[in-house]
Amino acid sequence: MLRLAVTGAGGFLGWHVRVLLRALGWPAPGVITRADLADPEAVAAKVSGVDRVLHLAGVNRGEPASVAAGNIQLAVQLAEGLRQAAVPPGSVVFANSVQAGNGTPYGDSKATAAGILADSGLPVDDVLLPNLYGEHGRPHYNSAVATFCRLLAEGGRPEVHADRELSLVHVADAASRLIGMPAGGSWDPTMPALRIGVKDLADGLTGFAATYRTGELPPLLNRHDVRLFNTYRSHCFPAHYPLALPTRSDNRGALVETVKAHGGAGQTFCSTTRPGITRGEHFHLAKVERFVVLRGSAEISLRRVGDSEVLRFPVSGDQPVVIDMPTMWAHNITNTGVDELLTLFWTNELFDPARPDTWPEPVELSPATPVPVPA
């Protein structure tokens, strides 16, 4: 279990690194803010004695000259703090780019930054990252995936003006590579890439959205299908939930179609819950999980890992609805009625006790455990 310090902890990659560390039960990393980087003594204090410093902060968008200057300045500031550390950290891991040294202001500044960190005298793991995608990416900033997902979630449709092949890596795989985790969970530090054309990507996500808009589940035939679908769902939550389920009734009773999956693995199970009892209190990194209350009344509560706001959905078996748990959100369900609660659950994968992808995390945070907000 390593002690880490991280720059860029509040960014897209930084958040996923912190979520993975949370799942693994590692100590929360020391956060080196932009304000800290302007003060070498503050950096030195935060990196002294740690096992590994992850340099994730960078400038990806803006005027070319500002992008170049920004990436170089961040590396210079960090390197100066590293040199002043009373106990030098064990190593530095640099979230570099496959574009490093490609002749553009961004690529050349990333290559220069790698050299500056190497001159600090510490071992540097220079990780060349391709295009990253994943849950809660910023549209028009982090990736085309985030942009397409947000457009579709808002009822629009992606437009592709120039098709080209992309090499996409899920951000959790990149996070596992940066912190040095071996394969073994839902992550893969070898960073397997999805090679796909922009048009095929747009068409695939559009198909996901069209199917899911009805409450049905699109084909989830491989790990990239699952992760792209989870990325799309992250842009739908919470505005698109709950998803209504039509009920067909006659003199025999009622019928509700709770899960219509168009392909891939899956497991369905039911549970009963006594009044006042809560189930859950965990999150998933990749698993798709569906809740449908069939009898009784309940409250489903969710909190994004690393945030403090709790979202609540009152649900009832009298009007069954779907709430699909977004990945990396802690969630639970509480029986709020006076009778036994009957709930149907569906997941996109068979339960594997050796790799359950179920990570303990309370939805409600106690006052003694405030959530830090990286800057």
Rank of each mutant, 00 (worst) to 15 (best):
P130S: 08
A368T: 14
Y232G: 03
P192G: 05
L82E: 04
T247G: 05
P192C: 07
V31P: 06
V373D: 12
F291E: 05
K199C: 02
S316C: 05
G296A: 09
S249I: 05
S366F: 10
G25E: 12
A209D: 15
L128R: 14
G266I: 01
A9S: 09
I333D: 11
F208M: 12
G264E: 02
T358M: 13
A144T: 08
T33V: 06
E63I: 04
G207M: 07
T33E: 06
A261P: 00
F237G: 05
Y232P: 01
V226M: 07
T7P: 03
S48F: 05
D51R: 01
D250Q: 09
V288Y: 04
V321G: 06
Y212S: 14
T206L: 12
F94M: 08
T190G: 11
A244K: 08
D126P: 02
P362C: 12
K46F: 04
L78M: 06
L74Y: 02
D36I: 02
F148E: 00
P29A: 08
H235K: 03
L74G: 00
G62W: 01
D188C: 08
L294E: 14
A57T: 01
V98W: 13
F229I: 04
A100P: 04
E41G: 07
A298S: 15
P372H: 15
L350Y: 13
T104I: 10
